[in-house]
Computed example of a mutant assay.
Amino acid sequence: MGYLVIGHITRDVTPAGDFVGGTVAYSGRAADALGCQTAVLTSCEPEYEGLKQLAPLAVEVVPAANTSTFENIYGEDGRTQMLYTVADKIRPEHLPLAWRQPAVVHLGPLTNEVAPAFMRHFPHSIIGLTPQGWLRRWTVDGRVYATEWPEAEQYLPLADVVILSEEDLLNDEMLPRYRRLSKLLIMTENLRGCTVFAEDETRQIPAPRVTQVEPTGAGDIFAAAFLVQFARNGRNPWQAAEFANFIAAQSVTKIGLDAKIDLIQSLQHEKNYSIT
């Protein structure tokens, strides 16, 4: 099965050093670990060392002068997210011809870099959105803030699956509006699991209890696991959500991208969570 993920790979600045980040890294590696032929369309500096983390995948880079670089700063008022440099926009004309018919397309913007028009280019694919990057902007000095996505009404109905974090919600009106616009909406709820809104039915799917060690990338890993299983199990959203909860919950018990991916690969043979 072909899994294509589009968005910026990032350099994440932390007190422990710089690490590779971005939906393309975590979702892409997770889809690969779950047995998919996986491709990444991204933009960054061509020599960015973080690209080595995508070595198992097919990667197309839109060359940029900068790599998108984030830092999360924690203080008495909570978290402040900074965006220091931004890579280039990613548009449909950047898509290699050989990548036009994947089973799953995952649009994972982080800096409003992914053209929503991609949704019109894959008529035979399952299109999944993690829209957080369309819901953020930043000030001149790089401080990131949440905002409305003005094109939501136009593009959400074109997606097969929309996966939204409860942390993405800007107000009480946003969830019912996105639910109305989306064919299938999943709201992730951290350690509590997720809520699935499918047509007229709503179910809260609990996650297994684990000891959380590092939550980085859990939302992106959830998204990849959901979309992969959704494509493989006849588009059953309830079973896909249960599977994604399990995979994401296990990922937070490990530190670092490689350790999380190694664990996911080992779970392929888990008796009750077969991905075949």
Rank of each mutant, 00 (worst) to 15 (best):
N245L: 09
Q53W: 09
T14Q: 10
N245I: 10
A16T: 12
Q250G: 07
G50I: 00
P96Y: 15
Y155M: 06
M1L: 06
F246C: 02
P176C: 05
I126V: 15
A224Q: 03
I127N: 03
V162L: 06
Q265H: 04
L107Q: 13
I6Y: 07
P92T: 11
T195L: 07
D141C: 08
H106T: 07
P208S: 03
E242D: 08
E76Y: 07
F70L: 09
I127C: 04
Q81V: 12
L54H: 04
T211F: 10
P150I: 09
G17Y: 10
E242M: 06
V20E: 02
F19C: 05
S68C: 10
D200H: 12
T10E: 11
A16F: 11
T85S: 15
G78C: 11
Y273P: 07
V161R: 00
F226R: 02
Y155I: 05
L181P: 13
V105H: 03
D168M: 03
G108M: 01
A64F: 06
F243V: 10
L110H: 10
V210F: 03
V213L: 13
P150Y: 12
T147M: 13
V196G: 01
W134P: 11
H124I: 02
A64V: 04
V61S: 02
E173W: 10
I186V: 15
P150F: 11
D160A: 09
G142D: 08
I275N: 07
A218W: 05
L129D: 04
R232G: 09
A223Q: 02
G75L: 11
F226E: 01
A223S: 14
R192Y: 12
G256E: 03
L34R: 01
Y178M: 14
V5K: 07
V20H: 01
A16W: 09
E47L: 08
A207M: 08
S266N: 05
T38D: 09
L95H: 11
P157D: 00
S182F: 05
P96H: 15
A55L: 08
N66E: 09
N245G: 10
D172Y: 05
A115H: 12
T23Q: 12
W149G: 02
S165H: 01
E189F: 05
E201K: 14
P237Q: 11
F197H: 13
L110V: 15
M1T: 02
Q53I: 08
P96E: 14
Q212A: 13
T69Q: 13
A16E: 13
D258E: 13
R209G: 13
D88K: 14
V86W: 08
A207E: 04
R179P: 02
L181Y: 12
E153P: 12
F70K: 08
D168K: 04
I90P: 11
R209I: 15
A98L: 08
D258K: 15
H94I: 12
A39D: 01
L184D: 00
I205H: 01
G2E: 15
K89D: 14
L175C: 00
G217W: 11
M174I: 09
P92V: 13
V213N: 10
T253R: 14
L41S: 02
A241Y: 00
L267T: 03
S274F: 06
I186Y: 02
L41M: 03
E166S: 11
P176R: 05
V162W: 02
E113H: 04
D160M: 11
A218N: 02
W138M: 09
